[in-house]
Simulated assay, not measured.
Amino acid sequence: MKREKSTYDLGDYELSVELVINDESRLHDYGIRRSAWFRGIRMMRRYGPDLALELLDERANRCYERKDIPMCYRLRDLMVAIHAMTEDEVQPNDRVH
Rank of each mutant, 00 (worst) to 15 (best):
Y64W: 06
L78F: 03
L78A: 03
E65I: 07
Y47S: 15
R3M: 10
R74T: 08
R95C: 02
L53G: 08
L53N: 06
D68M: 05
I41R: 15
G31Q: 08
G40F: 07
C63W: 00
S25F: 06
L10H: 06
I69Y: 13
E87Q: 14
I41M: 08
I21T: 06
G11D: 11
G11F: 11
Y8S: 15
C63I: 00
R45N: 10
E54C: 07
N22Q: 05
S35L: 07
G48C: 10
M71C: 02
T7K: 11
D50Q: 10
L51T: 11
D94M: 08
S16D: 08
Q91N: 13
P49I: 06
M43D: 05
S16W: 01
D12M: 06
R42A: 15
L75G: 03
Y8L: 14
G48K: 12
R3T: 14
Y30L: 15
D23I: 06
M1D: 03
M43H: 05
M71S: 14
D12L: 10
C63F: 01
A81H: 05
D68R: 09
C72I: 01
L78R: 07
P49C: 13
L19S: 09
T7E: 13
L10G: 07
L55R: 14
I82F: 02
G40A: 08
A60G: 05
S25R: 11
N22H: 10
L53Q: 10
A84C: 01
R95I: 13
E4Y: 07
V96Y: 00
T86A: 12
I21D: 02
I32M: 01
R76Q: 12
L78N: 04
D9L: 10
D29C: 03
R26D: 04
A84Q: 11
L15N: 11
G40L: 02
K2M: 06
Y30A: 02
S6F: 12
D9C: 11
R42V: 02
D88V: 09
E18A: 11
R39E: 08
R62A: 15
E18T: 14
D94Q: 12
Y73G: 14
G31E: 04
I69L: 13
S6V: 13
N93V: 09
N93M: 11
Y47M: 07
D12C: 02
M79W: 01
E24T: 05
V90T: 14
H83A: 14
N93T: 12
